[in-house]
Design a binder for these strands. Structure first.
Lengths: 153, 153
DNA sequence: CAAGATTGACAGATCAATCTTG
DNA sequence: CAAGATTGATCTGTCAATCTTG
């Protein structure tokens, strides 16, 4: 078969190092995920917050850790979710420095619909289980190393 | 009495699906890369543009494909590189719709220094070669699938 | 009209600085 | 002061709309 014409089409350069493969794959995965739930008016960031709140309200600092974003990033994501009526902020009366984020009924409903929309599309991972297991090991190790450097501990 | 501090430390949840592992790893890899070259005043985005231009000037549309970003994204990255004197734009006289991006001597110099800074830090991938090979296969397949959907092919 | 590039509006993420509360 | 949260500035990235050139 002919390598038709120039690489105007998409191609993976065989000598990309893994870092580049990881970041390229990540961008595509997030975009695909976002495209699946775009009709609901949220993105992966909002989804992860609502998912973390499924068991009940959490203070923002803990929520940020769960979502693996900075407190500043989380604050703005919560801004959007609150604006759209998916969560509400309430000061923690036990320690008024804390702000508790509560999911609203609308937010819980949104989460359910988002889960249904995305569960069908998670079959993007075709290769053998051996390969995906190996992939998990490599990625987990990267995350642990770099995450420990960055997030302390 | 509040909960003694829980996993305030970093941890990889064992039942994360691969998508989440990939995106988490990607963010950390990019941040680590950016931290390594931050002193030079560029990020991974600028680095990739300069790297793509190492062999000589390119029109922006091709450059965007090489860097795997939208033409709009590239335009703003080139804005920054041009502002800082690392590249210059020149209209292609053969086809005046095109804009050719040329690296400046300062840009070429920056690229060299960035390469030196980062080459030392690429040993973040510790596991066996079998695992990394498997990881490459999985990631490549994800990229091909999603990239073909998105970027045409 | 089609291709190439740019601009506007926005989301996600970061760092640095600030405000509030303990 | 320390912890938690927020705000300002900036960067990367997206989509949609526009401008220029062929």
């Amino acid at each position: 078969m002919i390598m038709t014409n120039e690489p105007r089409s998409f191609a993976v350069d065989p000598d990309w190092h893994i870092g580049r493969l990881v970041t390229a794959a990540a961008r595509m995965l997030e975009q695909a995920f976002d495209a699946n739930i775009a009709e609901l008016g949220i993105t992966h960031a909002g989804f992860r917050v609502l998912d973390a709140l499924a068991a009940g309200p959490l203070p923002q600092n803990l929520l940020a850790v769960r979502c693996q974003v900075q407190a500043q990033t989380l604050s703005r994501i919560v801004d959007g979710l609150e604006r759209d009526g998916h969560v509400v902020r309430r000061r923690d009366e036990e320690d008024r420095r804390r702000v508790l984020v509560h999911p609203t009924p609308a937010g819980a409903d949104l989460l359910e619909r988002a889960r249904r929309l995305t569960s069908a599309h998670l079959d993007v991972f075709p290769t053998s289980t051996d390969d995906t297991d190996a992939c998990r090991r490599v990625l987990t190790q990267i995350i642990k190393r770099l995450g420990d450097d960055r997030w302390g501990r």
